[in-house]
Structures are given as C-alpha cells and as structure tokens.
Design a protein around this nucleic acid. Structure first.
Length: 463
RNA sequence: GGCCCGUUCGUCUAGCGGUUAGGACUCCGGCCUCUCACGCCGGCAACAGGGGUUCGAGUCCCCUACGGGUCACCA
C-alpha cells in the first residue's frame, strides 16, 4: 500500500507551496488506493501554536483534501524517540558529546576563518578520556565516515553525496534531551509506514542525514520525491512579500478550490497538452515521476483564467451557495437562474461575481460619468422618455428576456430606431454603467416596474 | 565558499536522436454583437553559451555562465 504524508511545522498558515506538495502526496496515495497522513512537526516546544494547526486543517477542509487517520503530533511522541535514542546509544551508534555550545561556536569561527566548512570535529566519538563535569551533553549519531550515500529520487534521479562533504556527526538529542528534526522525521516516517515521501526541494539536503538514521535503526527506506520550489512571478523565491501566500486568502479573493488545485497541480507537472483537470482526472493521471525537475514561477493570470473556467462551468446551485460568502443571498430570487447564467461567463472571481450581481439587483447609486458623457444627450434622453411611456402603456406584463426583446423591437420599429440608440442609454439607466449582460436579461431580472423606476430616476437627474 | 539541484516562447509546459520545435495563459488582430464578457478564427514569441559524440542533437557527454537549495542544540 502507498502511504504518503504531509508534515508541516505549525508556524503559520498553510501556504500555496505547502498545499501543492500536500496535493501531490494526496493524489499519489489515493491513486494507489493508499493513505494520506498528516503529521505536525512540533518538536520545537518553544514555538508552537494550536492556531497554526487549526489554520492548516481549515485550509485542507476548504480545498477538500482529507487526511486519513488521526493527526500525529510529534510533541506527543517523545517517549518513542527516547527509546530509539537509547537503542542507538546501547548499540554504540550514537554517543554523548560534551562540547559546550560556546566551544562549538569557537570551533566554527576558526574554521570559517580558515575558509573551511564549519563542522563538528567528532572529538567525542569513541572518546575515552575524562568526561568534563558541569556540561549537559548532547547526543550525536555516528555517521558513516568515508562512505557515499546514494538514493534514487523519483524526480531528480540518482543522487549521490559523500558523507564527509555534507555532514558531521549531527545532534539527535539536544542537551535537554529533546530530539531533533532529522532524527524524528526518519523515525516517524518509518513508524507510520510511509512508503513515499513527497516534499519540497529544500529538504533534498536533509535526506542523506535521514538515510543515516534509517540505516542506523534498520528501517527500510521509503521512496523520495523532491518537488522543485515555486518562485514568484519575477523568478525569485516566493515569500510573504509576494502576497496571497495563505491558502485561505484565495477564498477571500473569490477563487474556487477546484481552480486553485488545478492551477497548483499544473505548476510543475503536466499530462501532455491537458490544462483542465477534475479531481478524478488528477487522481487517475497524476504520477510524481512526471514532475518537472526545475522550479516554476507562480503566474496569477493562469489561475484567474482557470477560475473563470470553473465559474463558467459550475452548476448554478453551487454558485448561489458560494455567493453567500460574499454577502449576496439570491436563493429566493425568482430569476436567480437567469442572473447566474448571465454572469457566469463574465466574472473571473466569485467576489467579482457578487459585485456584478449586486449592480443589477440594486438600483444604481451612482452613474459612470464617462458613460453618461458618451451616451446621454438630448436625443437619447428623449428616446428613454418615450420608452418609459411605451412601457407604461403596455397592456401585458413581460417577464422573460424573450418577451422583453419583443416589446423592445416593437418600440424600435414604431419609432424607427436602431437597437444601438436605445441599448446603452437604457443600460446606464438600469445598472449605472455602459457594461452589463444583455439588456433583455437585465430587464427580465429587475422586472418591469424597476425598469421604469430606474429610467425615470435617470431622467430626473439629467434634465 | 563547499556540497547538491536546475536552465525550451514573458509565464506554465509538450518533446524522451531525424518535428515547419506543439499546446495553454498573457498580449495583438478579426468574426460574433445592444455594451462587456464568453465563444470561434488568426498572429507575435523559445531550445542560456561553448565544445564534443553522431550521417544527424532541444534531446547524449564535458566545460562555462546564470538561477536555486543547503550547510544550527530551527523545522
């Protein structure tokens, strides 16, 4: 069975880079009928937050990624880590190091001065001298000096590093005996039965260290996949300054989770020329081996295009529900279908959608001055005047767009006018600007009495 | 600086020794049209540079340049 995991440290919100690796992990597990687990990496007791964990869960819920089983908290597993530390000590695969932090700093400084790579000099490995008093020791693992560590990354291919180049006998337990990251990650991944580790590129250099731990403990290695980073539009590392890092921010901006997921899955991965992927398609087509080797820049225009696509194709009921988040309730409106259909191909975000809907539903509070200047003059005001008279004289009440179209045509014919001469002035009267869906649709949505009311209001203010 | 990774249109990418180097977003034309969108049609635009290997290289190898990651008693 394929078991993957997402293992964030609870330092803040879930950002889009994290969501992408989570998505990849989720897809790969689910595609293979496996499990996707969530683990919170909170070994650093100093900074830790429940809110951050909650934020991650909320974001997962919004996009619809469900993790299997209970969330694993590393802070609750210290007993387990302690056991393995003791095991390594007993087997002489780890040892106490009595070098103080100050000493270590000094060593590092002198190495830097000599342009050497700062590293611990293994002075307490196989130490037989007298042990310094008054020093709370740390525990270090014995790394396989002189060896080469090789592994086959599912994305990058063969990776091979010399142990002496990339690590010293690194610390697995701090002087307060709390375990460190590279140690616990290996243990947890092994114990949780993780078969495929999909994570950010920035962890690539941690992997050899974790392999050392796996080997020391006799655990079987998982498959590793190191996903290249997401860059900002100018090709630099994505940071908070780029804005919209928090996944939930996308909800506020009116993006649909499907669009975000589709955007993210295509950022660094592709399947031929296909751009649109439903969750089912992602599930059947995704394979981490096809992920690109190079970093990709975040490009919000594509996301916007995808969002527009998903809005266009979403069921009306769904849109109506989503619009409530933007304080628009149209569930009881008798022309809600027409309204939503008219706007579906026009709005790029749900936020924009709500704004457009409101501009139709509610009487205009102000008019676009450019539009006024361009389309309102003596002639057009006269036409509007005549049009309201005509509307009032009707002996039946039109409802459907087609019915409004008929009466408009009748009016135009009687007065020997072209649609162009009526459409824009009427549009301005109804919604306050020169842009809106078809006037017939708008008329049908706001109804006869409101058309007359809005036209008369405009006439009054411009006479 | 050491180590590791990367480099195809502005951006996301297809390509897996022989292609007029394809698609998508953006942008620019055109059609449709009551405006704006949508849709449809068309256009601009790329193999980082240099050496090899080969009959033939975007594809394989080496070097250079550039970009990124990482070098903690953080995760």
């Amino acid at each position: 069975m394929t078991i993957t995991r997402f293992a964030p440290s609870p330092t803040g919100y879930l950002h889009i880079g994290g969501l992408r690796t989570a998505l990849y992990s989720y897809l790969w597990a689910k595609k293979n009928g496996g499990k996707f687990l969530l683990r919170i990496e909170d070994t650093d007791l100093k900074r830790n937050s429940i809110e951050a964990t909650k934020a991650i869960e909320n974001a997962f819920e919004w996009v619809g990624l469900k993790h299997d089983e209970k969330i694993v908290y590393q802070s609750q597993r210290f007993d387990i880590y302690k056991k393995y530390i003791q095991q390594l000590l007993d087997e002489d695969k780890a040892y106490y190091c009595y070098m103080s932090k100050e000493e270590l700093d000094k060593l590092r400084e002198s190495q830097m001065a000599k342009k050497q790579r700062p590293r611990y000099d293994n002075r307490y490995r196989d130490f037989s001298g007298t042990i310094p008093k008054d020093i709370k020791p740390v525990i270090r693992i014995k790394t396989p000096i002189g060896k080469t560590i090789e592994f086959d990354d599912g994305i990058k291919g063969k990776i091979s590093v010399k142990v002496d180049d990339v690590m010293d006998d690194f610390i697995i337990a701090r002087s307060d005996m709390s375990p460190t990251y590279n140690f616990v990650v290996a243990i947890d991944d092994a114990l949780m039965g993780i078969t495929d580790v999909i994570r950010g590129d920035d962890h690539l250099s941690n992997t050899p260290k974790q392999i050392v731990v796996y080997n020391a403990l006799g655990f079987k290695l998982p498959n590793f996949y190191h996903v290249p980073m997401i860059l900002n539009p100018s090709g630099k590392k994505l940071s908070k300054r780029d804005g919209a890092m928090d996944v939930m921010e996308y909800k506020n901006m009116g993006y649909m989770p499907e669009a975000l997921l589709n955007f993210l899955v295509r950022l660094g991965w592709s399947y031929g020329d296909q751009e649109i992927f439903s969750m089912d398609e992602m599930l059947s087509l995704f394979d981490p081996h096809d992920i690109n080797k190079s970093a990709s820049a975040y490009n919000s225009e594509k996301l916007q295009w995808l969002n527009a696509h998903y809005i266009k194709n979403a069921p009306t009921k769904r849109i109506i529900k989503d619009l409530e988040f933007f304080e628009l309730k149209i569930i009881d409106h008798d022309q809600k279908e027409l309204l939503v259909d008219a706007l579906k191909s026009r709005a790029k975000t749900l936020k924009e959608f709500a704004l457009m809907a409101k501009s139709i539903l509610f009487d205009p509070t102000e008019y676009d001055q450019k539009a006024i200047k361009k389309f309102l003059n003596e002639d057009s005001l006269q036409i509007l005047q005549n049009f309201t008279k005509f509307l009032k004289s009707l002996n039946k009440t039109p409802h459907l767009p087609i019915e409004f179209e008929e009466i408009v045509k009748e009016f135009l014919q009687k007065n020997e006018l072209k649609m162009k001469q009526l459409a824009q002035p009427l549009r301005i009267a109804m919604v306050g600007s020169a842009v809106s869906p078809s006037v017939y649709d708008v008329m049908s949505i706001i109804k006869l009495e409101n058309i007359i009311k809005r036209v008369e209001k405009l006439l009054m203010e411009h006479q």
